[in-house]
Computed example of a mutant assay.
Amino acid sequence: MKLTYEGKTKNVYQLDNGNIVLKFKDDVTGENGVFDPGANTVGLTIEGAGKAGLRMTTYFFEKLMEKSIPTHFIDSNIEESTMTVKEAKVFGKGLEVICRFKAVGSFLRRYGAYCEEGQPLDAFVEVTIKDDDRQDPPISKQGLSMLSILSEEEYDTLEKLTQQISTLVKEDLASKGLELYDIKLEFGRDAKTKEIILIDEISGGNMRVYKEGQYIEPLALEALLFE
């Protein structure tokens, strides 16, 4: 395997057959030692976070495969904290897509004059550009098209997939007494077919989940999901 990229929460390796291997780390995003899935810096290291994130990611990707929802997932090895995926090209230099069911985090910080913490939102989709120096600025459908990052038709596909995937995750968590407030997803184009597919991961490290009004930390969430 050839190391091609060292990320905040995982490293990326290229295989000879064109597939990619993601190596999950124990680092999670946050600020001042506090976990925050929306942060663009590594905030802390949690022992076991890599395996926990991969286990949850595998669980949800397999469910998406059953629903024929396109993803980059091929298989995973929990013990080695690795996941093998199809090669995909990101939009521009990378986008993050957040689906919000409750007002919390950066949404609340920006729009708090118009909403209360925990106020219900109807699977609101928000797209931000991955750019640490510019604090991952939000961008609209029209802006993405004007900058030739993706077309308006592709945005519609992105939004539909985001709501479909996020609702599946929300309903699965709800069956275990857990409530999804928001989730951050990433998409790209399949390097071979050009189809828009879900990439990266679906884990406690990129979602906010509550139980009876109390926030659940990523490792505790994994334990609750598989207890």
Rank of each mutant, 00 (worst) to 15 (best):
Q164W: 06
E171H: 03
D182A: 03
I139C: 06
M146T: 12
I149K: 07
P138N: 02
S203W: 07
I197Q: 01
E179P: 02
K141H: 03
T167A: 08
I199F: 09
L180F: 06
I149M: 09
L168V: 12
L178W: 05
G177M: 12
P138A: 02
M146Y: 08
K194T: 11
L198K: 04
E154G: 11
L158V: 06
P137Q: 14
E152V: 14
E201R: 07
S203C: 09
E152N: 13
I202M: 03
L180R: 07
K192S: 14
P138R: 00
Q163I: 13
I165S: 01
S140W: 13
T157K: 15
I139V: 15
I197G: 01
T193H: 00
A191R: 04
S151N: 13
S166N: 07
E152A: 10
I149L: 14
L198C: 04
L161W: 02
E186F: 07
L198E: 02
G205D: 15
Q163D: 06
G177D: 10
T193F: 00
S148L: 13
E179C: 03
M146H: 14
I199C: 07
Q135N: 14
I183W: 04
L144I: 08
E179G: 04
K192A: 12
Q164G: 07
G188E: 12
D200Y: 04
A191I: 08
E159N: 11
T167P: 05
I139L: 06
Y181I: 10
L158M: 05
L180D: 10
L185G: 06
E152C: 11
L198S: 02
E186T: 10
L173P: 11
D136N: 00
S140R: 13
Y155M: 04
D172M: 08
Y155G: 02
L180M: 13
G188C: 09
S166C: 14
S203T: 08
D172F: 03
S166Y: 05
G188T: 13
D182L: 02
K192W: 12
K184S: 14
D200Q: 04
I197Y: 00
G143W: 02
Q142N: 00
Q164C: 15
D190V: 11
Q135R: 13
P138T: 05
E171Q: 12
E152Y: 05
K192H: 10
G204S: 03
D190S: 11
P138D: 01
V169N: 06
I199D: 10
D190Y: 08
K141V: 00
T162Q: 06
G205M: 15
M146L: 12
S151H: 12
L150Q: 07
Q163F: 05
E195H: 01
D200W: 04
T157C: 08
I199K: 10
E154R: 11
A174T: 12
L178D: 06
A191F: 04
E153F: 09
G205S: 12
L198H: 02
E153H: 07
E186P: 10
A191Y: 07
D156N: 15
L185Q: 13
I196R: 00
E201K: 09
K170H: 11
L185Y: 08
G204F: 04
E171T: 08
D136E: 00
D200L: 05
Q142L: 01
L158N: 02
M146C: 09
I183A: 02
G205C: 11
L161D: 01
F187V: 10
L150D: 06
D190A: 12
L198Y: 01
G177V: 12
I199S: 08
T157M: 13
G188D: 06
E154K: 11
